[in-house]
């Protein structure tokens, strides 16, 4: 009944999609740390990343330039959202709920614009390395899985360096600890807000580009990804980027095991249950809240 190879395969797939959730979760944390804002338009960045890459590759542009261009465009879109939606509300000292609602509305606007531009058909991009999967004790490891895990780990390391070594990264961390004190040190907090949106949008775009070959992308895939990313961030302890990555892995694993044990209809239910369990029992997440 219980097939160990199938179980190992399930775990591997869970961890792979968990990396994606983790990257999206980090995006939530980066913005939250810089501003205290929970950006519900995060899922739109994921969708745009995959979609723009698809559109560019349709124009016979190779993968790497398409992906880079997509990441840049999405990062700019993040800054645009920050400028025209978040900044005006921020300046008016809008409440947390209004901010959530406004970013959610921004997500809907982006979704609908995408629907009008590319239609409602699901789109995909080819796998990055078109070779048969590596077989390891019966478990098939696809190259796209390696791409996802490898890129995620490189990004985590790069983010670690960014937050520890660079002036901007350290300024962002200062904002996370205390915005007023950071402002008194000469850090332009509002500029950090724009930069955090760019960074978080770029992370979302990368996640979207990595995951699209294994699934597909359509105008409405953003919301489920955003919810998964948010759950990852909560599980990791909100505001802790690396906790969010860990949370993503855990969520991907929990989801894969739920599908393995209980059937695919319960995939979303499993994720939402993980969220509620953490909210009710340990809202500060596995690593403890950042604040």
């Amino acid at each position: 009944m219980l097939d160990p190879v199938f179980l190992a395969q399930t775990i591997l797939n869970g961890l792979s999609v968990g990396c994606i959730y983790g990257l999206i979760g980090i995006g939530f944390c980066v913005i939250y740390n810089a501003s205290g804002i929970v950006n519900f338009a995060q899922g739109a960045f994921v969708m745009m990343g995959g979609m723009i890459t698809h559109v560019l590759m349709q124009q016979h542009l190779p993968l790497i330039p398409s992906a880079l261009l997509a990441i840049i465009v999405v990062a700019l879109a993040g800054v645009v959202i920050e400028r025209i939606v978040v900044r005006p509300l921020w300046d008016r000292k809008a409440t947390m709920f209004v901010m959530i609602l406004a970013t959610l509305a921004a997500q809907i606007v982006i979704e609908r614009l995408t629907l009008m531009l590319v239609g409602d058909q699901p789109k995909s991009i080819a796998v990055f390395t078109d070779l048969p999967p590596i077989k390891l004790a019966g478990v098939a490891i696809g190259y796209q899985t390696l791409w996802i895990m490898g890129t995620s780990l490189v990004l985590i390391a790069a983010l670690g360096l960014f937050f520890q070594k660079t002036l901007v990264g350290r300024a962002m961390r200062a904002c996370a600890i205390n915005r007023e004190a950071a402002a008194l040190q000469g850090i332009v907090v509002s500029r950090m807000l724009a930069m955090s949106f760019a960074l978080s949008a770029a992370l979302g775009a990368i996640a979207g580009i990595l995951v699209t070959p294994t699934q597909f992308t359509a105008f409405n895939v953003g919301t489920p990804f955003a919810i998964s990313g948010f759950i990852a961030a909560i599980v990791g302890g909100f505001g802790r980027p690396f906790g969010a990555f860990l949370g993503g892995l855990l969520l991907g694993l929990a989801q894969a095991l739920a599908v393995f044990g209980l059937g695919s209809g319960l995939k979303n239910m499993a994720a939402l249950s993980v969220l509620l369990i953490f909210l009710f029992l340990r809202p500060s997440g596995i690593l403890g809240s950042a604040k």
């Binding site: 939606v85 609602l101 009008m116």
Partner: peptide, 17 residues
């Protein structure tokens, strides 16, 4: 009709601001 959600979303953002 076709742009319903687009208009709602935009209207919501403008009103919130």
């Amino acid at each position: 009709k076709d742009y319903q959600d687009l208009v709602y979303g935009t209207a919501l953002i403008l009103i919130l601001i």
